[in-house]
Design a binder for these strands. Structure first.
Length: 593
DNA sequence: GCCGTTTTCGGCCCGACTGTTTTCAGTCG
């Protein structure tokens, strides 16, 4: 079913109506893909729906609006048929073919299909032959020993299923680990393996290397003079809880935190192929291989087979892999299947921003609100990290939790910070605030006190459950406020913990671009908000992006690396990001106050 | 269902593993 958050079926009841969101369209396509797959449709039709769902999810403008304007078929993988379905969904709230399929295939079968070891074929047979139409029905069938009636289901299958069903009821599908936690484990493991005498090259691959928001497991690719010794070294690390297997091709283990780690030890002359293969993402690799086939070549983790010569090219480096396909090396952060191959072929890959490009940080907290350290300590830490300026932006009057800062207190603080700044040499300390955006869109300080500050960020910290229209109007109003320089963590999401509040970011971006308000990529690894897709859209719309640590302690200034990673995944260059400039230069980019 | 530096029709990425099978379909990454 299509989730209906923020949208009204039978839309006449309201004067204005929330737009059909991209997530809702993508969900509808995914449901159709699942149902068609269970119905036994040709695999390529199913793949077409899945690809379209991904494209829609990665699109930063309203896909429903594109459909209404006749532009939706400009999106890759969306043709006439899918255009019709989006229009039907937009107009009637559902898709006729989905209605038909739901009448034919029980929706509960989708969760059966998702079970590990199951797929559309097995799920459908369970339904056709013994009437299993949900997970509960499957449980009952296993208990009753009915699975053995089926050809192709042996004792082993039944045993595996019992195990899977037991795990499934406990914590649902395998949970992903937020990148910062995975990275800490990866750095520990990679450092230890590199130090081992048998090791030659050791690199973490996978979504971790692409700096994704979260990762499922850890892939490590290595070359070694003694593969067995290196595999054993991994198995013996303190961080490892369980060893699943180890041998001359590598090892598979789990950490105490429950993360699976897969070490693959490969031949040095294939290291580039394997590293490329396991860095992914899937969409990138599929597109790369399709492109290769058109040139008469076949790419796999073992090499590149050339039809013309019948020979397989083995590559020691990733550069050789891409070069053999006529492409420059592509930074891992871009390998998501979002147009990077086309850009690479045209020599138009962006010159991505790096951590050292950042000159200042414009969002940080001290003990005045909920930070752990003083302004003096934060300044010292910022200087150690090579920054030239830092804004102290403690929480505001309505923050609550006993951490609020009254206007009077803030006025005292302005004096203190200005005095401290006077004593600093070659460093600029700014006094600012992270003012709450109240439900009506106004900041929770008076304009008079905001005007006294060097810098104002505005964020939402309360009333998350507003309607999409109201939340959008609220944040747009803040973006249009003459004294607000930037919007902080614009969607409020917490990765793997809390979904974003319902807001039409396209409208916020439009308003920010028009008003000259900057938008932050909050670099906290639990936020990374704006995300990569939205940050790319904002930059393309002409919004100046900030990468801010939101540090609540000195060590959290290092979180900027996650913000830079998100910016790189958004194709941003140093020029897109305002705080790559000196404070003096940045001030020229601000709206006039 | 989409798409076009051979194509508007006939293709559509690659290889390993698993379980049950005797040559392979289904699933997974």
């Amino acid at each position: 079913m299509i989730p209906q958050t923020g949208r009204t079926i039978g839309r006449v009841a309201y004067g204005t109506v929330a737009d059909l969101t991209n997530a809702q369209i993508a969900d509808a396509f995914e449901e159709l893909a699942d149902l068609y797959e269970l119905d036994g449709a040709v695999q390529y039709r199913v793949i077409a729906y899945r690809n379209a769902a991904r494209t829609v999810r990665d699109t930063s403008v309203s896909v429903a609006a594109l459909a209404r304007n006749g532009k939706i078929t400009d999106l890759p993988g969306i043709g006439k048929t899918l255009e019709e379905k989006v229009l039907a969904l937009d107009e009637s709230g559902d898709i006729p073919s989905a209605v038909k399929l739901r009448a034919k295939i029980p929706v509960g079968l989708i969760s059966v299909m998702r079970l590990p070891g199951f797929g559309p074929k097995r799920a459908k047979r369970l339904y056709d032959e013994i009437g299993v139409d949900s997970l509960d029905a499957l449980r009952a069938a296993v208990e009753a020993g009915r699975l053995r009636e089926l050809r192709g289901f042996g004792a082993k299958a039944e045993e595996n299923l019992r195990k899977v069903l037991a795990e499934h009821s406990e914590d649902g599908p395998a949970q992903r680990v937020v990148l910062s936690r995975a990275l800490a484990a990866a750095e520990e493991i990679v450092t230890a393996l590199r130090a081992h005498p048998a090791a030659d090259r050791v690199e973490a691959a996978g979504s971790l290397r692409r700096w994704a928001d979260s990762v499922k497991d850890l892939d490590i690719i290595a070359t070694a003079s003694d593969p067995v010794a290196l595999s054993r070294a991994l198995a013996e690390l303190e961080i490892v809880e369980t060893v699943h297997q180890t041998g001359d091709a590598g090892a598979r283990v789990s950490t105490h935190a429950g993360m699976k780690v897969d070490l693959k030890v490969v031949e040095p002359d294939q290291f580039g192929n394997v590293l490329q293969h396991f860095t992914g993402a899937k969409a990138h690799n599929v597109a790369l291989r399709e492109q290769a086939v058109r040139r008469g070549m076949h790419v796999s983790e073992y090499g590149i087979l050339d039809d013309a010569t019948g020979e397989t090219l083995r590559c020691a480096t990733e550069e050789e892999v891409y070069s053999a396909l006529g492409l420059p090396w592509i930074p891992p952060e871009l390998r998501e299947g979002r147009g990077e191959l086309e850009a690479a072929a045209l020599g138009k890959l962006p010159d991505l921003i790096e951590l050292d490009d950042l000159r200042g940080d414009l969002h940080s907290h001290t003990t005045t609100s909920d930070g752990k350290q003083t302004a003096e300590e934060m300044v010292a830490a910022a200087q150690e990290r090579g920054l030239d300026y830092l804004a102290i932006t403690d929480h505001s009057a309505t923050h609550g939790f006993g951490d609020h800062v009254t206007e009077d207190h803030l006025r005292e603080r302005i004096e203190e910070i200005r005095a401290l700044n006077e004593r600093l040499d070659g460093f600029t300390l700014l006094i600012g605030t992270e003012t709450n955006i109240l439900p009506d869109g106004s900041p929770d300080y008076s304009d008079a006190v905001l005007a006294e500050l060097d810098w104002v960020i505005a964020s939402v910290h309360t009333s998350f459950n507003m309607t999409r229209e109201n939340m959008t109007a609220r944040i747009v109003a803040a973006a249009e406020h003459p004294l607000i320089d930037a919007i902080g963590h614009p969607t409020g999401r917490k990765i793997s913990k809390r979904p974003p509040y319902d807001v039409d970011l396209e409208k916020v971006i439009e308003a920010a671009a028009k008003a000259g308000t900057m938008i932050e990529i909050n670099a906290s690894p639990n936020r990374r908000d704006l995300n990569d897709v939205h940050a790319r859209a904002a930059a393309e719309a002409g919004v100046r992006i900030l990468i801010n640590s939101d540090a609540h302690s000195t060590d959290e200034l290092d979180n900027r690396r996650y913000g830079v990673a998100t910016a790189r995944r958004a194709w941003l260059t140093a020029d897109h990001v305002a705080n790559t400039r000196t404070w003096k230069q940045l001030q020229k980019l601000r709206k006039s106050r």
